[in-house]
Simulated assay, not measured.
Amino acid sequence: MEIGIIGSGPIGRTLAGHLMALGNHVSIANSRGPASLAGVATETGATAATVEQASRARDVVIIAIPEKAVPQLPLGFLVATSAVVVDTGNYYPSRDGRISEIDGGLAESAWVARVLGRPVVKAFNNIVAPSLATRAVQAGSPGRICLAVAGDEIPAKEIILRLIDAIGFDAIDAGTLAESWRQQPGAPAYCRDLGTEGLKAALADANPALIDTYRAQADEVARPYFA
């Protein structure tokens, strides 16, 4: 497939390496431009690109940037693309500032979809980057980690479910984008290396009455990393 990745942090860089290893054509971009990505391109084999170029990828566009940067994306390209757009982001107020719609109850990726003006799939956010980088194994292997995939378009989710399996992880359909709060920061499924049944149980255990508490606790833990 032709895949564009916007964001060259740990998640974006790791996904570039995995996806290149599968034989895909991968471009990776960040806000600093292709010249800043020479090391990432050498490490992963992906093509350093502009954000606009990565946004034009034919099959999948993966957004791996802080929520505060989403409104600065080239919205025209993303609205027009027929590619599946994947949001890997997480909302941390101490990094992103307060986003009133999310604070008011809108799921993070539902907010991203609203900003972009198009559907998105939520994936790759409930795993820490070191696990994504090192714990991929063949299907059927003991201890295979499972990832949650949420979204409103079943064909788009199926593409990402298959992609995750090919990378080396189990994956489950975690419901609609509105339900993706179950894999947001602080929720029981967030940043835990769980198998399929464990992830299903963690998603089910999430309490909607505790969304603000989950977020506040996760933000407090992450705050030192954003200082």
Rank of each mutant, 00 (worst) to 15 (best):
I3Y: 01
G4Q: 00
S8W: 01
G9H: 02
I11V: 08
G12T: 02
R13T: 13
T14S: 01
L15P: 14
A16H: 08
H18R: 02
H18N: 08
M20V: 11
M20K: 05
L22M: 01
N24T: 01
V26N: 06
I28L: 01
I28H: 02
N30E: 07
A35H: 11
S36W: 03
L37R: 00
L37C: 05
A38T: 15
G39I: 09
V40Y: 04
A41L: 04
G45N: 03
A46H: 04
T47N: 09
A48H: 00
A49N: 12
T50R: 08
T50C: 14
V51S: 14
E52P: 14
Q53P: 13
R56D: 14
R58V: 10
V60R: 02
A69L: 05
A69Y: 02
V70N: 07
V70A: 06
A80K: 01
A80L: 03
V84L: 06
V86P: 15
D87A: 06
T88K: 03
G89P: 09
G89K: 01
N90V: 09
N90S: 09
Y92R: 03
Y92W: 05
R95Q: 07
R98H: 10
D103S: 06
G104N: 11
G105H: 03
G105T: 06
L106D: 12
A107I: 04
A110E: 10
W111A: 05
R114Y: 10
R114I: 09
L116R: 07
G117K: 00
R118E: 11
P119K: 11
V121M: 07
V121R: 04
K122D: 14
K122H: 12
A123R: 01
A123C: 11
V128K: 04
V128L: 07
A129N: 01
A133L: 03
T134P: 12
R135Y: 14
A136S: 12
A136K: 06
V137W: 11
Q138F: 15
Q138K: 12
A139P: 14
G140W: 07
G143M: 08
I145R: 05
L147G: 13
L147C: 14
V149P: 13
I154N: 12
P155H: 01
I159M: 02
I160M: 06
L161R: 04
L161V: 10
R162G: 15
L163N: 03
L163C: 07
D165N: 10
A166M: 06
A166D: 11
I167M: 02
D170Y: 07
A171P: 12
A171T: 06
I172E: 08
D173Y: 07
A178C: 13
E179F: 09
E179R: 03
S180K: 00
R182S: 15
Q183T: 11
Q184D: 15
C191V: 08
D193E: 12
L194C: 14
L194A: 14
L199E: 13
A202N: 09
L210M: 15
L210H: 14
T213Q: 15
R215S: 14
A216R: 07
E220M: 04
E220R: 03
V221H: 05
Y225A: 09
A227S: 08
